[in-house]
Structure formats: C-alpha cells, structure tokens
Design a protein around this nucleic acid. Structure first.
Lengths: 337, 337
DNA sequence: TTGTACGCGTTATCAT
DNA sequence: ATGATAACGCGTACAA
C-alpha cells in the first residue's frame, strides 16, 4: 500500500502539500494539485485512516449501543443512523446492551475504548448519574430517554402523548372496559405510556382498574400471558391495549387460543407500529413510533455537535401518531355521550 | 488521557515493559508487573486503540455488510456476529448495501477504507469476479453465497434442500396444485429454492406449471401482488408456497382480501422462519433458516483465519428445517398413493 | 528480565 | 504557495 510519502516523491512535492490536497482546504496551486492527484491515482493511494486518526485525534466513527441488534425496532433505528452518517463518511460501530446494567456498561466501555468520536445510546438500565459522568468525557446522544441535565442531547418520543392517543381512540370506539398489558414499569417509556393512557381514561370517565393492568415484558410472551391472565379473570373486557406491538401479537395468539375472535369478541391495540403490525390479522391498530427518523436525528445531532456539519434542523421531541387499522371493534354507544 | 509513557515513568520502568504487561505474553518479573499494574490503575490508563493499530497494523475491527440494517433477517445475523466477536474484543462496523451493485461496492469500499481486519459480507449484486479480486487484498467471509474459488470462505444454507423440504411437506399434505411466489430469480438463493421445490414436485408427479410461478421481490408487496395474480387466474390452486416469510405475509393479506380463508380455501407456506411467522394467523408453516448461527459461524471463521483464535468447530453448509404450523391444510388424498 | 531506539502514516506548526 | 519537522501513542527488534 502506497503511503503519502511515496506520493510526495512521485509528485516531487513535500508531504505537507500532499496532505493539503487530500484535505482539500489549503491554498495549493492548481498545477501542483494536478501533479499530486496524478501521483495518487498512479499509485492507487489510499490514506490510512488509522494514521489519520492518530495524528488528528479523530476516528470518524460513532458508536451505537442498542438493546438488541435484532428486532424491528432497533433495526430501523440503526438504519436511520447509518444512512445519515455514511453520507458524511462517518463509520458506525455497533454493540448490544441487552437491557441489562452490566451489559450496557460493558458495551459503552467497549465503544469508548475504540475511541469513538461520539456515542448514540439506547440504554435502559444504566443510571442517569452514570450517563452524566460519561457525558463529561464523551459526546453522547440518548435516544428514547431524557436525562435531567442532558436534555440537549436527548432525542425522544412523547410516550405520554402516545398513551393519550391510544386512550382517545379506544374511547371513541366505545370501549369503556379495557385491560392493559404494560411494559416493565421500571422502564421510563412504559411508565409514560401507561400514565398518558390512564390520564385520558380518567378524564373521560372510564379509568382502568389496577387489577386490569398486567405488567408484561415487551415481548410476545408477555402479551400472551397477559391476555390469558386478564381475560380469564375478567371476561367482560372488551379491549386489550398493549404497550407494544410484540405483546399485541402475543395477546392475539392468546385470545384466539381461548376461542374468542378479534375484534368481535375483544379488540386489540398496540404501540410502535412495527412493520409486522400490518402482517397481523386483523391488521393491528397502533401508535406510530418514528424511530427511523429519530435515529437520523440523533445522527444529525452528532454531525452538528461533534463534526460541525450542519445537515438540517434539529428537533428533540417527536410526536407519535395514531394508526387505526382493523383490530379494534367500533362498539355501539351504550351510555352517556 | 494518560499515555504508556506516563505509566512507565510512574512505575519506574521502560515503555517496553509496560507494553509487555499489557499484552500479557512476555516474561516480566512478578514484582515489576505489579508495579506497572499499580501505575496503570492509578493513572486510569487506557491504551489508545488507534496507536495500537498503527503500530501493530491491526485494527481489531471487522466490517459487516448486509443488504438492510432493518428487517429481522439481518438483525439476527448481526446479532450472532456481534456477540461472538465482542467476546474476543473485536469491534463490529456495519454498513448497508441495499442489494444494489453500486451501493454494495461503496459499502465495501467504505469498510475497507476503515482498515477492517476482515469483512463479513451478505452481498447479492456484486459479481463473483469482484469478490475474488477483493479477497486477494482483504480476508472476507461470504454469507449465503458460494463463489467458486472461495468456497472455504463461504457460509451458506442449503437453499436447494429447503425447497425440497417445502415440496415434501406440501405433497404429504395432499397438495398437488400449487402456486409459487418466488424471489427475484437473479438471486442465487431464489433460484435454488425454486429448483429444490420443483425437482421434488416433478419427482412426485405434480410439477408446478410455469405460469403458476410468480416472480416476487422478497417483500410483503410482492407476496400480495403474487397471490392476487395467481389466484385470480388460477382459482383452483390449493396452496401458495412463498420464497420467504415476508411474501407469505403479503399473500395472506391478499387471500383474505379476496374473501378466501386460510388454510381452508388456500394454504400458505413460507421460508426463513422469521420471528413474526409465529405472529401471523394462522401461524405460518415455513422453513427454518438458522441465520443467527450462521452469523456466529462467520465470526468464528474470521476469528480463526484472521486472529488465530480457535472458538469451535467450523462448518460451512447449514441445513434448513421444516417447521409445520397451521397455515397449511391437510387435504384428503384423492388420487394415487 | 529489562531498556533503547526506531517505525507506523498522518496532521499540524512553523518557517521560508 | 510550499517545505521541514515535530508530534500522535504504541509495538518490537535488538541490545544490554
């Protein structure tokens, strides 16, 4: 592999000049520039990114930590990030945190050890305090989490509003007696989704009783178990609202296994609007989570703050959107209004 | 950030000695070693991976190119790879190729420019020739593709066998009149799946007529369109076999839209056994594609070939497995045997 | 067992 | 506009 030195020899100029034409900026006479370019081409010269990093103290790589590499949610997120970053010649290094404190820390540590210029994190288990410490040494952007003191570096969805939208949709379809399969309540988003839902339901006169709430795991299995548990004890429930689409899918399986039909016997509502929500039968009504856009925005924020590249307007709070499909039955209005 | 030099100062030894204890190998007196370790801890020393790379000509990072970062298939693949690599302190850099020649080449070029020690590729559009050239300069492992001359570096599924398994399953359930929604036939795996299916069907006396084959795009939409097209023209088809689960999901949607029921009116069979196959209703019968294991194996292969780390037995050809669920109807045997 | 000195391929700071 | 030269932080023969 040819080095910058050989190029300078062939072109009959100094290292510095070659470096200048590489980085485009400085003043180099057109003629010299051409000589250098020719030499580069002839030698098929490729700069060593490692040497560049050592000298410039920049790796041009940003680390991403997600809970899982699989799963539609993180996939879309990474896709948004990578697309944006690559366009600006920045590399994307990935690691998984598995929603566990120790694993998340290891992942972050791992990324840091690689000298990433910045980190984009979707973490759930590590503490706010830990993140604040981390932010002192490394530029970070947090997705789906708001840490007091780091608000400027947080990109998140208004989960509370999503809960509200779900509530409105249910009430408007006449459901007054609904069960809720929540996410793990130690997770911020799970708490907010429930709060938004409940607040509207209270406001509209049909709050969910505590024992109509099942705390699931955000996975298919939690939805399955939750639906079974809820429906067995409270067969009068006309709808099951789930804190994410995976659990909605699980709930659907359980409902069918109990010999009931969807949405005639019981309606199902999801959250996230993952791709597969459209594959379900009946197609799942849910709340759209623009995770891909949020990933792009995180990348944009890094580009701006770390690399001084302006690639569009920054917005930190995203709004969910209610998607009504076929999994919710419109009940005849029985009581007031 | 403390450097190796400062550590050597504090410990009262030379740079070389510090380097030795870092890399564990050489002979260092226990006492000196402890001094160094203490100094490291005191200074919270972290070696600069960049400087290490420059000096050792190793980046300890491997690049991954997949068609898309989202989608359950690639997610599982990356997950398998990352888990394995991280355990051995290797970093994973990702890029997407979008199944297009130009984009795949750019992605590879991008990864190469980062001086990855090795590349793990899931590419479809670039030519065998291109890959052979690439392999001369960079260690590569190919997933789901066999390039003549690079067999040792290819990890793949026996797609042909998968097609065969699907055929057997259909025939044994009494289906003689089946339609096929194939993947893009310029893709190797799509061709093989069809070939395996057709060969068995011919052998068992019920080949698929050419016009009962619809060439889809491996996406939900292709399945939808394919099912419509096929079923409208050939309503007598008792089953639709799809070259992947996404298209099977699309086909299911189309079938229902046509007022038919699954599997009573028409059976559906998939390929890949993506997670969402279990969310579908009825749960999709399909062929299991152990992509996660294959990802791990690819990682294992680079660990062995590039880093001389033995992390288990290497196998290059994986076998699919038939998963029978509820989307296929068992027909009464009408004719011979 | 430990230390010296050079090389890795750039960038960046001064001069010129 | 261009060149010389010192970092950058570490690995590694080779010497001691």
């Amino acid at each position: 592999m040819a080095t910058i030195y050989e190029v300078s020899q062939l072109a009959g100029v100094s290292l510095a000049t070659v470096s200048r034409v590489m980085n485009g900026n400085d003043n180099v006479r057109e003629k010299t520039k051409q000589k250098v370019l020719a030499a580069m081409k002839e030698l098929d010269y490729r700069p060593s990114s490692v040497a560049q990093s050592l000298a410039s103290n920049r790796t041009n790589s940003v680390g991403i930590l997600v809970s899982e590499l699989h799963g539609p949610f993180y996939g879309d997120m990474m896709s948004g990030i990578e697309t944006k970053l690559r366009r600006h010649k920045k590399h994307t290094i990935i690691a998984a945190g598995h929603s566990q404190k120790k694993s998340e820390k290891e992942g972050i540590e791992f990324l840091v050890s690689r000298n990433c210029d910045a980190l984009i994190l979707h973490v759930e288990a590590v503490s706010d305090q830990y993140l604040k410490e981390l932010a002192k040494n490394t530029p970070i952007v947090l997705i789906n989490r708001i840490v007091p003191g780091l608000e400027e570096q947080c990109i998140s969805l208004n989960n509370y509003m999503g809960g509200q939208q779900a509530a409105h949709s249910m009430v408007e379809n006449g459901h007054q007696n609904i069960g809720y399969i929540s996410g793990p309540l130690w997770k911020q988003d799970a708490k907010e989704r429930l709060a938004g839902l409940q607040d509207i339901l209270i406001q509209r006169g049909c709050p969910i009783a505590d024992d109509h709430i099942y705390e699931g795991d955000y996975q298919e299995q939690g939805g399955f178990l939750g639906a079974k548990a809820l429906l067995e004890r409270y067969p009068q429930l006309s709808a099951l609202v789930c804190a994410n689409d995976e659990m909605a899918a699980g709930a659907m399986n359980a409902i069918r296994e109990m010999g009931k039909s969807i949405p005639d016997d019981v309606s199902v509502f999801g959250f996230d609007n993952m791709l597969f929500a459209q594959y379900l039968f009946p197609k799942l009504s849910t709340i759209d989570y623009p995770i891909r856009e949020m990933g792009k925005m995180a990348a944009r924020l890094v580009l701006k703050e770390v690399y001084n590249i302006d690639s569009g307007k920054i917005s930190r709070l995203f709004e969910p959107r209610c998607i009504e499909r076929q999994s919710v039955n419109a009940l005849p209005i029985s009581e007031a209004i």
